[in-house]
């Protein structure tokens, strides 16, 4: 029964990694200085944290209907997470929030709309 032990260890590692990424993303949401950089921090916990946690829970559940539901949740968040992040960013851009640039001496090609 070494296979079950390996699956167990891998799934715990995935769940721990997912938890760590989730907390890192939340810390970034608190620490980053302005809106445009907070977008990136939020997508850390939304992509890596979510993927690792769902994969770990899938390994824990084994081949059952529970796994199908977990994969459905994961696929849905995988598709809609970036979409809503893009929607927030686009709405902020449309309402006149200017994205700032730390790069000097280089002209942003069309950013100053």
């Amino acid at each position: 029964m070494t296979l079950t032990l390996v699956v167990e260890i891998v799934s715990w590692m995935l769940i721990l990694a997912g938890s760590a990424f989730t907390i890192i993303g939340a810390v970034g949401t608190l620490r980053f200085p302005n809106f445009w950089s907070r977008l990136h921090a939020a997508s850390v916990s939304e992509s890596a944290g979510m993927i690792f946690l769902v994969m770990g829970m899938c390994l824990q559940a084994g081949v059952t209907l529970v796994t199908v539901k977990l994969i459905l949740i994961g696929a849905f968040i995988f598709i809609t997470g970036p979409t809503s992040t893009h929607a927030v960013a686009n709405a902020a851009l449309m309402s006149g929030e200017k994205p700032e640039s730390d790069v000097t001496g280089e002209k942003a090609s069309k950013g100053e709309t």
Partner: peptide, 24 residues
């Protein structure tokens, strides 16, 4: 959050975390 978009972003992030929390 100073701007309203910070709040929307946090709300969306909170929702994703809630889904994972319910599953766990």
């Amino acid at each position: 959050g100073p701007t309203v978009y910070d709040r929307v972003l946090a709300l969306n992030s909170f929702g994703t975390l809630t889904v994972l929390f319910i599953a766990v």
